[in-house]
């Protein structure tokens, strides 16, 4: 039986960058008990001899020539930005390592 604890859900929420209250975590964990049992049925027939399908059509080698086309203007690029400065996207301080 597949199940997820509150902490498992909290870990997933961190990976997915979604703030969740304790209540949300608990609710989701209990919903997942039901949902995971339903979806885990795929394992009944997914045997080793079956190849996975990731693309519905058997297309191969679809390429674009290396030719430059016009870009957006910076005004268009930034038109939806919550904040901008000097034609750059302005974002809150980034916590993390220096590149």
């Amino acid at each position: 039986m597949s199940s997820l604890s509150r902490d498992d859900v909290a870990h997933l929420a961190r990976l997915a960058r979604i703030e969740m209250t304790d209540e949300e975590l608990v609710n989701l964990a209990s919903e997942f008990d039901v949902i995971l049992n339903a979806v885990a049925r795929v394992q009944e027939v997914a045997t080793a001899d079956v190849a996975p399908t990731s693309h519905p059509l058997p297309l191969r080698n679809v390429f674009r020539p290396d030719v430059v086309a016009p870009s957006l203007t910076p005004e268009e690029a930034l038109s939806g930005a919550p904040a901008s400065e000097e034609n750059r996207f302005k974002v809150p301080q980034i916590l993390g390592e220096e590149a």
Binding site: V39, A40, Q43, A46, V50, A51, P52, P56
Partner: peptide, 14 residues
């Protein structure tokens, strides 16, 4: 167990 198996089911349905 999950995504991989689901893709195999996709093959079976096809």
């Amino acid at each position: 167990a999950y995504y991989g198996s689901a893709q195999k089911v996709r093959t079976l349905i096809t």
